[in-house]
Amino acid sequence: MVMRNIWIRDLNDSAGPFATVVMDATHDTADATEQYRLRWRDLRERLVDAGADDATLAVLDEAVTGAGAPDGTAGRLLVADSARVLLDRHCEVPPERGTASWGPVPDLLAVLSSGSDEVPTVVVAVDRTGGEIRAVDGSVETVSSDATGPVHKANTAGPGEGGADARVEETWKRNAQAVAERVDKLVRGGNAGLLVVAGDAPARARLRDELAPASAEIMAEIENTGGTVPEQVDDTVRAAADDVREQRRVTAVTSYATASGRTDGLAVTGLSGVAAAARAHAVETLLVDPSAVPGTELLVGTDPTAVAERADELLAGGPETSGPAADVLVRAVVSADGDVVQARPGDDVTLSDGLGAILRFPVGPAA
């Protein structure tokens, strides 16, 4: 998956050490609350064995036991230090097994493997009178034009009905224009990556014709004849968001494969090359195959992008400590506004050490 990683970047506000927890938060049985507490107790014991301090454990105790559980199946991702919870997210799919780790760097590979990047989404239900719009932030509003003309055509044709029908169609068009104008603004303002439109086919077509190209390009449609956001829309949004995420991932993998076939130095693979590129803030997209990343550690300085295999490679910012190579590199790339892609077995790319990167500019001899 391609990660839009602003939410991970916030972890850099802490110097650590960090407790990272990935747990099953499913709540679909009568004893779900008790099972949830038992799962947390097991993970808590793992943190104790790993050396987590009492303050961090207390912070997590409060977060885990104090929050309401979501309905149905879900996973939960938590990262905390001794002062506060730094990351707390639910994901739709629970992990096959819970994990708990303690160290100088968050277990970001576990977090990324379990969570999905969010796809900011605008949802609109349209009909002849206008539409109801749900913005990226969840707020809902009803929009229509100032048109006062009729919205229903005559059932039978007669003298003068052609002109009346034209007035009706003009009202429909003006209502669609009003909805489209507001949708375009919400898509831009919310940096939406997905627009889900419900309504009958003619209403959806009218709206599509009025949308700006940037909105029309991210539009997914569902059949619904009402003018309010339907109950089943969340299932559609989830499915459409999955499609967006997979398309982003495939695009990134394809871009890496293309860059790897050129000689301009805009793709590197292997631990050494990726570390050097991350240190230079050159990584646009990091590819990671979790099953192939070596268990070795990298040095990391006070600046999260100060990463290296050897201390003499760090000119400034450290070294302060070391951490698992994958976690250190993910944090470094995110800190420099890069994205992260999880590679899959079927991808037609070769990654040395399970790592590859698309670069913004060449680094090292290729530069």
Rank of each mutant, 00 (worst) to 15 (best):
A336K: 10
T251I: 05
T251G: 07
L287N: 05
R206M: 00
P213S: 01
A241D: 13
P290I: 08
Q232D: 04
S260N: 10
E313L: 07
A316I: 11
A252N: 04
V307E: 05
P294I: 07
E246D: 12
A252E: 03
V253L: 06
G261H: 08
V333H: 07
S255C: 11
A308F: 02
V333P: 10
V328M: 07
A241M: 13
V341C: 13
T236M: 01
G318N: 05
A257Q: 07
L207F: 12
D337T: 07
A282K: 10
S335I: 02
E246W: 12
S272W: 03
E246Y: 10
R248W: 06
V268I: 14
E297N: 13
A316V: 14
A275I: 14
R262F: 08
E221D: 02
P213L: 04
A308S: 08
V244M: 07
V253N: 09
Y256H: 14
D337N: 07
V333K: 11
T228E: 12
Q247K: 14
V253M: 14
A214L: 08
A275G: 15
P304K: 03
V274I: 00
D303C: 02
D235W: 10
G270H: 10
A216V: 14
P319T: 00
E221A: 03
T296A: 13
A316Y: 14
E223N: 06
P290A: 04
L315I: 05
V300E: 01
A306T: 00
T285W: 04
A239Q: 10
Y256P: 11
S291D: 13
G323N: 00
Q247R: 15
T263H: 15
V250S: 15
D312E: 15
A311K: 13
V253Y: 09
H281R: 11
P319N: 05
V233K: 04
L298H: 06
A306P: 04
P304E: 03
V330M: 12
R245A: 08
G226F: 07
A267C: 05
T225G: 01
R279M: 10
H281S: 14
V328C: 06
A276M: 04
I222Y: 03
V229T: 02
R344W: 05
V268W: 15
A282R: 14
R279A: 15
G227Q: 13
I222G: 01
S335W: 02
A282S: 09
R238C: 09
E309M: 00
S322P: 01
G318F: 01
V274L: 01
L207G: 12
R310C: 07
S322L: 01
G323L: 02
